[in-house]
């Protein structure tokens, strides 16, 4: 079974209760043919383990790296990926869509 967004938030809670550092990423906006709908979640722990998906694999690596920074400094942030920016060139949304992702730490 694929993890649903509901399983992912349940995992975020249980990971945190187990004492792990946790960040949650949420797709807040999409343009064009973005692979994952608004509201999709990815949960990341301090060791870089993750569950869920915000882009079907295209930019997960970048989101996880940023997630570790959010865990470290606790400041929420918004990431943007798309064909037009530098990051996309690196991480790349091959579908040509654009997405904005909100990242926050679970405290």
């Amino acid at each position: 079974m694929l993890a649903t967004d509901t399983d992912i938030l349940a995992a975020a809670e249980s990971w945190r209760r187990d004492g792990r550092d946790v960040a949650v990423a949420t797709v807040i906006e999409t343009w064009g043919s973005a692979p994952r709908p608004v509201g999709s979640h990815l949960v990341i722990d301090g060791a870089g383990n993750f569950l869920g998906s915000v882009s079907g694999g295209c930019v997960e690596g970048e989101v996880i790296t940023e997630g570790l920074d959010v865990i470290a400094d606790g400041r929420p942030r918004i990431l943007e990926f798309g064909v037009a920016d530098e990051t996309a060139w690196r991480a790349g949304l091959s579908c040509g869509g654009r997405i904005r992702v909100f990242l926050e730490r679970v405290a």
């Binding site: 938030l9 349940a10 949420t26 909100f102 730490r105």
Partner: peptide, 23 residues
């Protein structure tokens, strides 16, 4: 996100009640 907020959201889901998280 505070763990209490996350837990409350998960509890509403488990009870099959709708809820909206405003961020």
């Amino acid at each position: 996100m505070r763990i209490e907020t996350l837990a409350a959201l998960n509890a509403e889901r488990a009870a099959r009640r709708a809820a909206i998280l405003v961020t």
